[in-house]
Design a protein around this nucleic acid. Structure first.
Lengths: 358, 358
DNA sequence: CTGTTAGCGCCTTCAG
DNA sequence: CTGAAGGCGCTAACAG
C-alpha cells in the first residue's frame, strides 16, 4: 500500500522531476539524442543508442515537460473550451463531442466554466491564452466582443458554439433556430393549441434566445387564429413563474393552451411550476421544449422536445478549429444544424393518442 | 466587425505574441523591472518606472506567458481533474464545487474526461503531469493503482473523489456509503416493502458500488421478514433490465416490492424500464435511488432519493488538495459525507400519503 | 531602486 | 549518426 502523503514527503528531496539531462547522463548520450528519440526522429539514431535511451527512460520514468516543449516549439497541443454553464446538460454534451475529436487528434482539452459571468469568461480567455492553447471553443456568455477585452487580437483561433458574438465574426456552430422554432410552433398549432406562450430566460441579447423568440412570433403571425406572447423569467424566481403561468392558464384565450420552452432548463422549470400549480402533466396544457434530455420521456405523459444534435455540434466545432489550425484562412463558417422534433404526450391532445405517445 | 479568420491571417506576421522583452524595451527599463512589476514586487519600483511599465503593458496588450513562468518557477497554478464520466451529473456537480474553490484561490482547473476508460485515465494522468499541474482531483475508473502506471511516483498530490483505489491510500472524499445505504434500505422496510432488489451497474470492483451492496445485504440480514438480491446490469442492455424487472415483479415474494438504485443513471434506467413494462410510476413498486437530480421530483409520483452533497464534496476535495499544496504531509484524510434521504411518492405506499408527498 | 546574469527543460540549427 | 551551443519567455540571485 503506497501512501501519497508519504511519497509527497519524499518528493522534496527525492521525487524531483527527472529531466532530459538525467536521461542523457544515464544513457551516456547527449540531450540532443534523447530529444531526437522523443521527437520522432528515431531513425536517425543507431540501434544501440536508441535502446539505451529507451531503457533509461523507462528506468527513470521520464516524461517530457510539456511546458518546456511548448515554450520552445510555440505550440502546446492544448485546446481550451469555455462553457457558459456546466450545469446545463447542453454544454456538457457538446463538450463530449469536442473531446472525442480532441482525443482523436492528440489534443488535450482544458475546460473552464465561466458560470455565465462575463468577467470570468474574459479572464479565462486570457488564462487560456497565457497557457498558449492552440485554439478555443467558446460557448459565450458575453454578447459582444467589446466586453471580452483583448479577444480581438487573440492569437489562437476561436470557434463559437451555440451563441454568436456581436462585432466578432468567427466560425460558429449551433442550431438552426428559425427552422427549429418554426417546427416546434407549427407542431403545437397543428395539434390544436391556440393560445401559446414562449417561455425563456431573460433574453439579455443572447442570439439564440432572440432568434427563437423572433421565429415564434413570426410563425404566430401566419396564424391569425392563434394568440401568443413571450414570458421572460428570472431563473431564480419560481414564484413569479408560478404566478405568470397561473394567469396564463386561467385567462380567456384563443383556445387550448401550450408552452414553448426555450431550453432544457426552462422546460424543467415550467414542468415544476405546473406541478406546483397542481396540474396534471399534461392534461390541460401542452408543452414543447428545446433540448432533449434523458428524462424528457418520463415526465408526465412525456415531454415533446426539439432535440439538438449536441454531440455533432461539438464535433463540428472542433472540426472548424482543426481546419483553422491547419492554416485555413477562409471566411468564417457558420454551421447550423437542424433540430429534430420528438413528439410525446405533452403535445398530444387526444387522450387515446396520448396514451400511445407516452 | 472583426473577422477572426482575417485576424488569424495577420497573426503569422503581425500578432506574434508580445514578450516581456518588448515591454521592457518600450518602457526603457530592464526585463527585471517588468518582471518585478508583474510579480507583485511593485513597491520596489519608483513611481515613474511603474507608470511607464504599466503604460507599455496596456499599450502592447502584453500578457505574461504562463508556460515560461511555470518552467521557471516550477509551479503553474494549474489543477487537473479527471472525471470518469462527464455525462454523469454527479461528476459535474462535484466539478462545480472544485472549480469554485479553484477560482477563489487563483487556480485554473483543467478538466479531462476519461470516459470510464482506464487507459485514457492513465494517459490523462500523465498528460496532466507533463503540464506540471500542481495537484489532481481524480474520480477514478481504474480500481487499482497498479493499472495507473506511474501514479505511485506522481509528484503532484492526488485527491480521490467518490471511489477509492486499491493499493493507493490518499486523501479521499466521498459519501458514507454504509450509512446512506442503511438509511435507504431501512426506509423501504419501514414503508412496508418486503421484497427488495438492489440494482447496480456491474460491480466491477468499484468501491462505491461494493460498499453500497454490502450495506444493503447487511441491513436485510437484520430483517428476516424481508428478502432481497442484487441485480447487476449492463448499462447498454435495456432488454435484460426489462426482463429481470418483469421477473421480479411477477415473482412471488416476501411482500410489497421495491427497487434500490445505486446511482442516478440506474435510477433513470429503472424508471424507463418500469415505464416500458407499462407500470404506473409508482403504484405497485417502490423505488429509492442514490443521487438527487433536478427531475427526481417530477417523475411519476416523485422519486425518493439519497441526496449527496456533491458541491460540498467538490469543495472538500479541493480543500484537501490545498492543504497538501500548503505542505501538509500528514496521513491521508478520508472524508465521508452523510447522504440525505428525500422522501417522495415512490416510497409512499398509502395512496393518501402519496398524494401529499408528490 | 535598478540592471546583469544565469538558468528552468527542451528543441534546433550547425558542425563534426 | 552524434554532440555542442543558443535561445524560447520568464524569474531570481547577485551586484550595484
Amino acid at each position: 500500500m503506497v501512501r501519497q502523503a508519504d511519497s509527497a514527503g519524499l518528493s522534496a528531496t527525492n521525487t524531483k522531476r527527472v529531466t532530459i539531462n538525467e536521461v542523457a547522463r544515464d544513457a551516456r548520450v547527449s540531450k540532443t539524442s534523447v530529444s531526437r528519440y522523443l521527437g520522432g526522429a528515431r531513425h536517425l539514431l543507431s540501434d544501440e543508442t536508441r535502446d539505451q535511451i529507451e531503457r533509461s527512460i523507462t528506468k527513470l520514468g521520464y516524461q517530457p515537460n510539456q511546458m518546456a516543449r511548448g515554450l520552445k516549439r510555440g505550440h502546446t497541443r492544448l485546446i481550451g473550451m469555455i462553457i457558459a454553464d456546466v450545469l446545463n446538460p447542453y454544454s456538457i454534451a457538446v463538450m463530449h463531442g469536442v473531446e472525442a475529436v480532441c482525443q482523436q487528434h492528440g489534443y488535450t482539452l482544458m475546460v473552464c466554466n465561466s458560470n455565465n459571468d462575463e468577467r470570468a469568461e474574459g479572464r479565462y480567455l486570457e488564462i487560456l491564452q497565457s497557457y498558449s492553447v492552440e485554439g478555443v471553443i467558446l460557448h459565450a456568455c458575453a454578447r459582444s466582443a467589446a466586453n471580452l477585452g483583448q479577444i480581438v487580437r487573440y492569437q489562437a483561433p476561436i470557434v463559437l458554439v451555440d451563441r454568436r458574438l456581436a462585432d466578432f465574426d468567427t466560425d460558429l456552430v449551433g442550431l438552426d433556430n428559425y427552422q427549429s422554432t418554426i417546427t416546434a410552433t407549427s407542431h403545437l398549432i397543428d395539434q390544436g393549441y391556440r393560445d401559446l406562450v414562449f417561455v425563456t430566460e431573460a433574453l439579455q441579447g443572447f442570439s439564440t434566445r432572440l432568434e427563437r423568440e423572433a421565429a415564434f412570433h413570426l410563425t404566430l403571425r401566419r396564424h391569425p387564429e392563434c394568440a401568443g406572447f413571450t414570458l421572460a423569467l428570472d431563473v431564480n424566481d419560481a414564484e413569479k413563474l408560478d404566478q405568470e403561468l397561473r394567469n396564463f392558464l386561467t385567462s380567456d384565450g384563443a383556445g387550448p393552451k401550450a408552452v414553448l420552452a426555450t431550453n432544457g432548463v426552462v422546460t424543467l422549470q415550467a414542468s415544476q411550476s405546473l406541478r406546483r400549480l397542481g396540474r396534471q402533466l399534461f392534461e390541460d396544457i401542452g408543452l414543447v421544449g428545446f433540448d432533449e434530455l434523458e428524462w424528457s420521456a418520463l415526465i408526465g405523459t412525456g415531454i415533446t422536445t426539439i432535440a439538438q444534435p449536441t454531440h455533432d455540434i461539438g464535433i463540428a466545432a472542433m472540426d472548424c478549429l482543426l481546419r483553422r489550425l491547419a492554416g485555413d484562412r477562409s471566411a468564417p463558417r457558420h454551421i447550423a444544424f437542424r433540430g429534430q422534433l420528438l413528439v410525446r404526450g405533452s403535445t398530444t391532445r387526444n387522450p387515446s393518442e396520448r396514451r400511445r405517445a407516452a
